[in-house]
């Protein structure tokens, strides 16, 4: 008996150790990626990177200024499409939680979250690029905007649901109609959390490449027209990564570092904000 217990305890410890090793194994690539980004990317990062247009093929120098601005333009377009639909739709899911529509929409949002981003690129291509006969910032923004919807919708739903029922009642009892109660009292009460969700969603789509390949397409120059092709940071990273030039490789690392830094900052902020949001309960 005693002996069997020792075996069991030994086995327990081994398995505990195994799960710990699994954790290390899973996190190793992350730390390796971050380490390489920091070491390679940082050395390639300079003022030119943020202020100059890309140089001619194979020539050192130049930067990704237009790609950075392009990404900002694209996520702005995406936000214009995705944020209202996501926030209002998410509010519907929270305020009318047990309707047939909300069950369907919730399920659809979860499914949509898993649709490959390249498929969204195809959709935007068929929807916008084909009829207009050329690539455009608009089509890229639409692809990213659609991808933004499920994230924003589901986080909005969760956050708005945290708003205590007593807050709604207080407003309704004052003779404020439901629509105003929702728009002016409930959503503002949940605003911090909703904004956090939006930021996380935007950070995610800011790094998307596949849906932009044949929509935004990329551009080596400045573009002020959303109906024309536009550069984007992830597109530029991709193009440089598969190029044969060392200097472009270094710039790809620099671009990746910028992108990941943004993702990192947003996620840490979100975590901090989420920690505070809990107190609202």
């Amino acid at each position: 008996m005693q002996r069997r217990y020792l075996v069991r305890r030994w086995k327990n410890r081994v398995m505990a150790g195994v799960t710990f090793l699994c954790t290390l194994a899973v996190l190793t690539p992350l730390f390796l990626i971050l380490a390489f980004l920091a070491s390679t990317g940082l050395s390639a990062l300079n003022w030119d990177f943020f202020t100059k247009l890309p140089g001619a093929a194979g020539e050192p120098g130049g930067g990704m200024a237009n790609a950075i601005v392009g990404t900002l333009v694209l996520i702005t377009l995406a936000g214009v499409i995705g944020i209202p639909i996501g926030v209002l739709g998410g509010t519907f899911l929270s305020e009318y939680p047990n309707t047939r529509l909300s069950h369907t929409a919730r399920f659809a949002a979860d499914v949509m979250n898993g649709i490959p981003s390249i498929v969204m690129g195809l959709f935007a291509y068929v929807l916008i690029v084909l009829p207009m006969h050329h690539f455009s910032a608009l089509s890229g923004g639409v692809a990213l905007g659609i991808m933004l919807i499920p994230t924003v919708m589901r986080t909005t739903e969760e956050i708005v649901r945290l708003v205590p029922q007593s807050v709604r009642e207080a407003s309704l009892a004052l003779g404020i109609p439901i629509w105003k109660t929702t728009l002016r009292v409930v959503i503002p009460t949940a605003a911090a959390g909703i904004v956090t969700g939006i930021m996380v969603g935007l950070a995610r789509i800011a790094g998307e490449t596949a849906p932009l390949l044949f929509t935004a397409f990329g551009n080596r120059f400045w573009n002020r027209d959303i109906l024309q092709p536009i550069a984007a940071l992830p597109l530029q990273i991709f193009a440089y990564a598969i190029s044969p030039f060392d200097d472009w490789h270094r710039q790809a690392w620099a671009g990746a570092l910028v992108l990941v830094t943004i993702v990192l900052i947003v996620n840490i902020t979100a975590r901090y904000a989420a920690g505070r949001q809990v107190k609202l309960r």
């Binding site: 205590p164 007593s166 807050v167 207080a170 009892a173 503002p188 009460t189």
Partner: peptide
């Protein structure tokens, strides 16, 4: 008008 069991000022 109505006043509730637990005070419910608008938190924001």
């Amino acid at each position: 008008g109505m006043v509730f069991q637990k005070a419910n000022p608008f938190p924001t």
